[in-house]
C-alpha cells in the first residue's frame, strides 16, 4: 500500500515539478512587480533585487496617480473605451441579427465583407483617417479614438454574433411575428436578450483589446491631455525627468492588477466564451 503510494507519487513528480516551474515563471514577475511598487528609490538602486520593501512606501501610488498624471490617462481610457464598446455591441449585435435571422439577397456577400476587416492591419487605415480627422477638425478631441475603435471592433463582433444567431431556430422569431410583433420589436424583446451571454463574451474580449491598444492611441493622441493609459505609461518616465522606480512600478501595478482583478471577477465566462469560439472557428 505504502509502496504503491510512493511509486504513484514518484511517477507524478516530473509533472508536478513542470507545473510548479511554469507557475513560478508566470507568477514571480508579478510578485516582484507588486513588491517593487512599495520600495524607495534608494532600495531599488542599492538594495538587493530579491529583498522585501523595508518600510512600505505607499506614497508611490499617490505620486503615480497625481504627479504622474495617471488619473488623467485612466479617465481618457474610460471615456474612449466605454462609448466605443457601447457602439460596438449595439451596432454589431443588430447587424449580426440582420445578417443571419432576416432573409434577403446579398447577405452572405455583406458578411464576407465584414470578415475581410478582421485581417486588414491597422496600419492600412491610419493615414487616410489621420487626414480625415484633421480636415474635420476632430484632432484634439477623443472622438478619433472612439470612432476608430468602433470600426475596428465591428468585424469580429458582427461575425461572432452572426454565428450565434445561426444556432437559434428562426421559428422563435416567426412565432413572435405571428403574434403581431414587428421584426424590430422581435430583435429588441427577443433577439438581444437571448444573446445576452454571447454579447457579454464579445464585449469582454473587445474591452481587453481596446484597453490594451497602443497603435491607434499613439496615432490620434497629439497632446498629453488626451493620452490613454497605455500611451501615458509609455511616456511615464518623462513626467519625472528621470526614472523614479517606485511611482513607475506603482503605475504599472495599477494597470496590471486592475486588468487582473477584472479578469478574475469575470473569469469563468471568458474561458467559456474562448472555448466556444475556438470550437466553431
Amino acid at each position: 500500500m505504502a509502496t504503491a503510494f510512493v511509486s504513484r507519487f514518484a511517477r507524478q513528480l516530473p509533472v508536478r515539478l513542470l507545473v510548479l516551474v511554469l507557475l513560478v515563471i508566470v507568477v514571480y514577475p508579478l510578485v516582484w512587480l507588486l513588491l517593487g511598487s512599495f520600495k524607495t528609490q534608494d532600495e531599488f538602486l542599492n538594495g538587493s533585487t530579491w529583498a522585501l520593501p523595508q518600510h512600505w512606501q505607499f506614497s508611490n501610488y499617490s505620486d503615480a496617480w497625481t504627479t504622474g498624471n495617471l488619473s488623467t490617462y485612466v479617465r481618457n481610457s474610460v471615456l474612449t473605451v466605454g462609448p466605443a464598446l457601447a457602439f460596438i455591441v449595439l451596432f454589431g449585435v443588430a447587424a449580426g441579427f440582420a445578417l443571419e435571422v432576416m432573409v434577403w439577397k446579398g447577405r452572405n456577400a455583406v458578411l464576407l465583407t465584414f470578415l475581410l476587416g478582421i485581417m486588414v492591419p491597422g496600419q492600412m487605415i491610419l493615414l487616410p483617417l489621420f487626414t480625415s480627422y484633421f480636415q474635420l477638425g476632430l484632432t484634439g478631441t477623443l472622438w478619433p479614438l472612439i470612432i476608430t475603435y468602433t470600426a475596428i471592433g465591428l468585424p469580429l463582433t458582427v461575425f461572432m454574433m452572426a454565428t450565434y444567431f445561426r444556432a437559434i431556430p428562426r421559428e422563435i422569431f416567426e412565432a413572435a411575428v405571428l403574434d403581431g410583433a414587428s421584426m424590430l420589436r422581435a430583435f429588441f424583446s427577443i433577439g438581444f436578450p437571448m444573446a445576452r451571454n454571447a454579447v457579454f463574451t464579445v464585449a469582454l474580449v473587445q474591452f481587453f483589446f481596446l484597453w490594451n491598444d497602443l497603435l491607434i492611441a499613439l496615432t490620434f493622441t497629439n497632446t498629453s491631455d488626451l493620452r490613454t493609459i497605455q500611451v501615458g505609461l509609455l511616456n511615464f518616465t518623462g513626467e519625472f525627468g528621470q526614472t523614479e522606480y517606485g511611482p513607475l512600478f506603482a503605475a504599472i501595478c495599477i494597470n496590471v492588477f486592475g486588468c487582473l482583478a477584472l479578469y478574475l471577477f469575470l473569469n469563468q465566462k471568458v474561458m467559456k466564451g474562448l472555448a466556444g469560439g475556438a470550437v466553431k472557428g
Binding site: M102, L129, S132
Partner: peptide, 16 residues
C-alpha cells in the same frame, strides 16, 4: 438594424 454597422464599417475601414 444593419445600417449603422455597415455605415461605420464602410466609412472608417473600407473607404480608408
Amino acid at each position: 438594424l444593419l445600417g449603422p454597422a455597415l455605415l461605420v464599417y464602410t466609412l472608417v475601414m473600407l473607404v480608408p
